[in-house]
Design a protein around this nucleic acid. Structure first.
Length: 549
RNA sequence: GGCCCCGUGGUCAAGCGGUUAAGACAUCGCCCUUUCACGGCGGAGACAUGGGUUCGAUUCCCGUCGGGGUCACCA
């Protein structure tokens, strides 16, 4: 009996690997084209760090004319979640990071290198596992969980490395006859890789982000096929990324320490290894300790959070790009109107250590992103968000023409307002512009310098009776407010007041504030002239009258 | 604990042998201004630490400390 016989005994029906090698040929792509992927587990949940990886992969493939695909890694059946793929597909769609190949719905896919769901590739892995068995590069292992645990304890007390390697790899040196015997007796087994490595030798690895990293060789006989017949991550990675002709593996840096293993697997399988880029995770400060953004503790870890909060997609992407490439910020300042696609992304500019997530900065970018939009774009985005998350706002926005006027205030000029950082801000930002809301609210008027009821009423009354004219242009409009101030003994110019504060009760700015507060219930609003134009004469009058009561 | 990676202001970060150690967000002040926002100007604020190497170290080497990752039939 030889390796071949043992392999046939274990995987009698597996196809020869030449079948797959032919079925999935080298891709016909231009020189330098990068083939990369996003390969999450189908938990339905996309972590912001995952989105970050996907974004980087997308940038790299796009700029080189390559291929970006989505592969679902569902080899752990215990973690299976209902509609897990859909959640991922949708999240990528929300952020406009569309794969060229791979899963497109829960069950459907596109592309010629599939299946793109690992559980559907079982027989492929088995063919390659059989191949390894035939070569004597893999072997069946009959150790039980208990035995493994026992070994680990011995290793710990002997203070040696834990794991299945060297003399500790009990099944490694079983003869094929012994192994076959056990199999025929119905003993349970899994398949292990027979590592040719030696721990006392070093390997050099050049990571596209981390740079040169030296590791000891791998000497662990890791499991490649589990008891359920599915592969482990490591084996699936080697087989899939070879067959799918991946040239660049972009993944979280928790995988960095597996590189020696993976390189060895590629080597023993006879595959050309891809290049690797290990991305540092996005961290969070937790009582002075840095830790990864956690799915359980941090709502902002989930990409759906950003959608729910209405943080603009481009703001999230810009923020991520900001963390990813230190050059991005300068590029953006130099090219405020260019599309994100035009930014030349450089892997080697990526930070080697993990950045702390900064919501304040994200929101600041959100403000800028929204300030660059037209009223129409602001409307479309807010409305879309409202339809999904805020019924009240949706109602408010039903009258599109009016909403466009509201959003148009101080927008489109060289210094656009920056007061909305996310779509969920919109309601608070505009609600006072709507009579049906304004008049149905219990009002509080936060008057400032001038806050005597009598003084206020005098100002308001005089303004309505004598100075308000809805047809004034902005200059005339403001001149009248000055006259109003003058008539009531307030300084017509702020400067005059500052020069001689004792001569006046207050100044025109304070008078304006009275009008503003009466009109909107707010001290901070956009340009009051434009507000009056938008809400119209009737509303202005009624609002001021209401304030006098 | 073994192995690996990292350590510039509160945060993100340029710089990589000789710099007044950039910039952005945040923060403070001033200016502009009918408010707010925007914008402009300015302030405060950093090379973890100890040894080397060097004429000279934030930059190179070693140690220490600190942070992170990894050591599964999970990915």
């Amino acid at each position: 009996m030889n390796y071949k016989d043992l392999a046939d005994l274990i995987f009698p029906d597996a196809k020869d690997i030449s079948y797959y090698e032919e079925k999935y040929p080298e891709r016909n792509l231009p020189e330098g084209a990068v083939v990369s992927r996003f390969a999450p587990s189908p938990t339905g949940f996309v972590h912001i760090g995952g989105l970050y990886q996907a974004l980087v992969a997308k940038e790299m493939t796009e700029k080189t004319g390559g291929v970006f695909f989505l592969r679902v890694e569902d080899t752990d059946q215990k973690r299976e979640v209902e509609n897990g793929v859909t959640g991922i597909v949708n999240s990528l769609k929300d952020f406009d990071i569309l794969p060229d190949e791979g899963m497109v719905t829960e069950t459907e896919e596109k592309g010629n290198y599939g299946p793109y769901k690992q559980s559907l590739r079982k027989e492929i892995y088995q063919s390659y596992a059989k191949y390894m068995l035939e070569q004597g590069k893999a072997y069946p292992c009959f150790c039980t969980t208990e035995e493994l645990e026992e070994t680990r304890k011995k290793q710990e007390s002997a203070k040696v490395r834990t794991g299945y390697y060297g003399v500790w790899a009990k099944c490694r040196n079983l003869s094929v006859e012994e192994a076959a015997e056990k199999i025929k007796n119905g003993e349970n087994y899994i398949i292990r890789f027979k590592s040719p490595g030696r721990e006392d030798r070093k390997i050099k690895h050049h990571d596209l982000i981390k740079g040169n990293v030296d590791f000891p060789e791998n000497d662990q006989d890791i499991v490649i096929i589990k008891a359920d017949g599915l592969p482990t991550y490591h084996f699936a990675h080697a087989v899939d990324d070879h067959l799918m002709r991946t040239t660049l593996v972009i993944r979280s840096d928790e995988w960095l320490s597996s590189v020696p293993l993976h390189l060895q697997l590629f080597q023993e399988l006879g595959f050309k290894a891809p290049k690797y880029a290990h991305i540092s995770p996005i961290m969070k400060n937790d009582n002075g300790n840095k830790r990864k953004l956690s799915k359980r503790k941090d709502p902002e870890a989930a990409v759906t959070y950003y959608k729910e909060e209405g943080i603009p997609v481009d703001a999230v992407k810009e923020y991520l790009l900001n963390i990813a490439n230190s050059t991005f910020e300068n590029w953006r300042r130099a090219n405020p109107d260019k599309s994100l696609d035009e930014f030349d992304f450089q892997l080697n500019k990526m930070s080697v250590s993990g950045a702390l997530f900064d919501m304040v900065k994200l929101l600041d970018i959100g403000k800028t992103v929204i300030s660059r939009m037209t009223a129409e774009e602001v409307y479309e985005n807010s409305f879309k968000w409202a339809q999904e998350y805020d019924e009240e706002l949706e109602k408010i926005l039903e009258d599109k023409d009016y909403a466009l006027k509201v959003f148009g205030i101080e927008r489109g000029n060289k210094k656009p307002r920056k007061d909305i950082s996310k779509w969920s801000d919109v309601k608070y930002n505009i609600e006072y512009m709507y009579d049906n809301i304004f008049f149905n609210k219990d009002m509080e008027y936060p008057y400032q310098v001038i806050n005597d009821k009598e003084d206020i009423n005098k100002i308001l009354k005089l303004y309505i009776d004598k100075y308000y004219n809805e047809n004034d242009d902005k200059q005339a409009w403001f001149d009248r407010i000055k006259e109003l101030a003058g008539e009531l003994g307030y300084a017509k110019e702020v400067k005059e007041y500052k020069a001689n504060p004792d001569a006046y009760k207050a100044h025109v700015g304070d008078v304006s504030t009275v009008l503003r507060v009466a009109l909107t219930g707010r001290t901070n609003t956009p340009d009051m002239y434009e507000i009056m134009q938008v809400i119209g004469k009737d509303s202005v009058t009624k609002r001021l009258e209401k304030a006098m009561r």
